[in-house]
């Protein structure tokens, strides 16, 4: 506390008086609550429309830039490094390699999750290095996950796909026949 140069210090785990659920529900604390009704419907555009529609087919699609040679995934209609329009579309595989992962135990309200969620960034086979997807892993115990693990997408049944990133249920450990 620099203000006024007072010698006030705060212990790392200060114990105050915690607010209880009742303090809030019985309005012992003066608050005003609001639940705004904000609804959006984003146009997916040229690149993402194709990407989402290909998800329905159980396929992952990327774009390519012939100047820098990159396979850009997820696709966009411009190469952001060369700053030029892309030169075409190309399918990439639904397999890849875990680049980083986290095991998440609590939900956004800080409540414990019934089952931990393993979030991972996956470099997708066929896309340029450092291009891929952030998704979740399944069919694997948290302690078995490692950076460099090979994984494959597990898709929803075709009649349940809706053109959303959740058309992939999760990615599971996978061994390439050639590995």
């Amino acid at each position: 506390m620099a203000v006024g140069r007072k010698k006030i210090s705060c212990p790392p785990y200060a114990e105050g008086t915690a607010l209880s659920e009742r303090d809030i529900s019985e309005r012992r604390v003066t608050i005003f609550e609001d639940h705004p009704n904000l609804v959006y419907s984003w146009t997916a555009g040229q690149a993402m429309s194709r990407f989402l529609n290909e998800l329905k087919n159980g396929k992952l699609i990327a774009t390519k830039c012939e100047k820098c040679g990159r396979i850009i995934f997820p696709p966009r209609i411009y190469c952001e490094l060369c700053y030029k329009p892309i030169d075409g579309w190309v399918y990439v595989k639904d397999t890849g390699t875990v680049q980083t992962f986290s095991i998440s135990y609590i939900d956004p309200d800080a409540r414990p999750l019934e089952k931990p969620v393993i979030v991972a960034v996956i470099a997708v086979d066929g896309a340029s290095p450092n291009m891929g997807i952030m998704h979740i892993l399944g069919e694997v115990e948290p302690e078995k996950v490692y950076i460099g693990m090979r994984v494959k997408a597990v898709w929803k049944p075709e009649n349940e796909r809706e053109g959303a990133i959740t058309d992939i249920k999760y990615w599971k450990p996978w061994r390439d026949e050639n590995d």
């Binding site: 984003w42 146009t43 997916a44 555009g45 040229q46 690149a47 993402m48 966009r76 209609i77 411009y78």
Partner: peptide, 12 residues
């Protein structure tokens, strides 16, 4: 209305 382009694409 711009149903063919996303907001990123109109910026581009």
């Amino acid at each position: 209305n711009t149903p063919d382009l996303s907001w990123k694409e109109i910026m581009y």
